[in-house]
Structures are given as structure tokens and as C-alpha cells.
């Protein structure tokens, strides 16, 4: 799994951090997403897909190609 985030689209909701805190964080100054782990382990995959699905700015893209 490979994750990409679109910082311009990100609205700083933090939904991704609520769901997958080991993979996502937010910048202190403006709340924009920080990708902690672009290629997370398998134990995180379901959470990451959930985070991408509920992102209210559609700013998280998940690809299955390594």
C-alpha cells in the first residue's frame, strides 16, 4: 500500500488522525495533514482505507501498488 496526500485539498478536519493516528498527524500551526508513514504495514491497511474514505476533502489517495 502506498499513500499520497494532497495538502492543498486538506481542510484540517483531522478525521484521518482520529482513525489512524499511527499513519497521519496534523501540523501544529495550520492543521494540515502530515503523512507519518507513506507505506504502512498491513495491520494499518483497513484503518487507512477508512481514513481515506471519510476524509471530507477527498485529500487522501491510497494505491495498492507498492
Amino acid at each position: 500500500m502506498k499513500i499520497t496526500v494532497d495538502e492543498v485539498k486538506c481542510c484540517g478536519a483531522g478525521q484521518c488522525v482520529l482513525i489512524a493516528p499511527e499513519v497521519f498527524d496534523q501540523r501544529d500551526e495550520d492543521g494540515i495533514v502530515i503523512l507519518l508513514e507513506p507505506e504502512p504495514g498491513e495491520d494499518q491497511h483497513a484503518l487507512v482505507r477508512e481514513a481515506a474514505a471519510v476524509c471530507p476533502a477527498a485529500a487522501i489517495e491510497v494505491s495498492d501498488q507498492a
Partner: peptide, 10 residues
Amino acid sequence: LGWNMPKQAR
């Protein structure tokens, strides 16, 4: 509510 403090609000 957060006003220019999204992370802190979350």
C-alpha cells in the same frame, strides 16, 4: 470550536 487552530480543536 477552533479558529485557525485545527489541530488543537481536534
